[in-house]
Write a protein that binds this DNA or RNA. Sequence first.
DNA 1: CATATATTCAACAGATTAGTTGAATAGCAT
DNA 2: ATGCTATTCAACTAATCTGTTGAATATATG
Lengths: 222, 222
Amino acid sequence: MNAATHREFKDRLFEQFARVGKALSSPKRLEIVDLLAQGERTVEEIARETAMSVASASQHLQALKAARMVEARREGLYAHYRLADEDVFRTWQAVRSLAESRLSEVDSVVEAYLVDRDALEAVDATELMERLSDGNVVVLDVRPEEEYRAGHIPGALSVPVDALEAVLQTLPRDREIIAYCRGPYCVFSDEAVALLRSRGYRAHRLRQGLPDWRAAGMPVEG
Amino acid sequence: MNAATHREFKDRLFEQFARVGKALSSPKRLEIVDLLAQGERTVEEIARETAMSVASASQHLQALKAARMVEARREGLYAHYRLADEDVFRTWQAVRSLAESRLSEVDSVVEAYLVDRDALEAVDATELMERLSDGNVVVLDVRPEEEYRAGHIPGALSVPVDALEAVLQTLPRDREIIAYCRGPYCVFSDEAVALLRSRGYRAHRLRQGLPDWRAAGMPVEG
DNA sequence: CATATATTCAACAGATTAGTTGAATAGCAT
DNA sequence: ATGCTATTCAACTAATCTGTTGAATATATG
């Protein structure tokens, strides 16, 4: 292969790789990917949950679809979008974790909005996995119920954070409670743990969310 | 946290994550990351190897530095750039492999420029690792010698592809030869295997490059 | 000190991208 | 069919990005 041809080859090849990078280069698109990791969503739901106009959400979805990272299923009036495969989540995970480890600004943002998060003493997936077999721990899935139905940690109870207050008394006071959520930056579990502690329960946050749990090869039920 | 604050939190957080995505959204920057995975380089070297002007290379390097993905070391007149850590390569690997699995265009490009690549019967890292202990295989590092010096597969011989012709007769005819290179799309090993085969050697290509080998936790020498 | 070289910076032009608005499309309900 | 709703498309503007050019900076050498 001569030099000019070799350059052409590389240009075309890296142009393809960059399609994936470009898809991951917008905050809103990353948020969509993170959201779709919970399960499929209609355009309207995505628009609402990411605070975008429907047209804007649709356009970002087209961009993700052009990079073959999401797929749509049409059902009646609604287009249901989902991640095209597990690797999409893994790639987003790699980007997220690189940002976590290299960009101190991520910590600054977290600290600015989630005061004293360390106090919630997050537990890691592997740690929870061990304790699950001991059976001396109660796991709460504090996401919206629909997400629980789409898959949850085996044995976890579905207690959407808004419903927590109401079911508080049914929770055993003698066992440790671990609340989990959508991902490492999902605040539902922070709120749940704070409420539980204020009522005298021993509660912790699971550091990872369900998609991370699943991607780590841990068992998922339902 | 009220809804408006929550939105602000997410916006700032995902803005940070997107810095990594943006850094990976240009073909040239991906090529730089891929190149730096071989070891550090000066701006001029990067510009030459990626077919860019020096000013352009410098700007892309600034962009990567702003995302804290590369670091520079100044030595006399020269700025030596390197990947900031192993996770940067792993993230690039994730992007690359997502593109490979989801974008059929990657295959089209490879097939268009590397005719009959399958014929070279690539060997996987794990497979090579097993055969290494048997000792019945010769491993050739066909990258420029300097890259060999910066780290290579234990026991591999440094035979830059241009030098292969000259050392052909010193290679044993009775053992299988496996040539490796910079990465899965590096063509040096293709050329080496083609030449070796045309002279009657049993030769194969290692599917992964040295950075992939290293990232997979395989031993690296030198 | 003057000169040479590697790199960075600043200013610019052209291309691409993000978000908005309003219209078009497609499928359901009546 | 008519209306209703979810989604997509098209046109537009503002903002951002890429590459180029030439100047500025920094560090070596004579």
